[in-house]
Amino acid sequence: METAELTAEPKAALDKETQALRCEALAFGHCLVGKPPSELEIQRYIAAQPILFPDAASPREERLLAYCRKHPAAVAYLDAAQGVLGPENLLRKKILAMTAILETTPQHSEHFLSRDYSRLQLLARLGWTGFRAVLRVLLGIPLLKIVGH
């Protein structure tokens, strides 16, 4: 997904910070459920910021967030690497906030509610999900080293 697509909303009226948060919401939402969140979900994400994250981001955290805003496809990799190397991080907290917002929205409920699978289906899905998770960590670590410095 291109950055241009993510920032297609009316941006003239938005200040720089709100615009940045909007880009974050779009990037995180797309990473989590495979499509951009609705305007309402974006607004909830923006409204959550002063409550959940009242402190300013460190320069490193800001660099990571800026990279995610610019390259939404990198979100899952940076998140995976950060989960292994330093889980208490602003990027992961912000993605978790978006996760909570999406989980409690009826439109995305099916992404979070369990389904009945046969033993074989479950095994196959677990295998694939585990493989993907490990791959993301392996690819994410060098990317994090580059972006974080």
């Binding site: 990799y77 995976a80 989960g83 889980p87 996760t99 677990l126 999900t129 993907r132 998770a133």
Partner: peptide, 10 residues
């Protein structure tokens, strides 16, 4: 400790 999206799927 996994990425949020992988944790969610798992």
């Amino acid at each position: 400790p996994l990425s949020r999206v992988d944790s969610m799927a798992l």
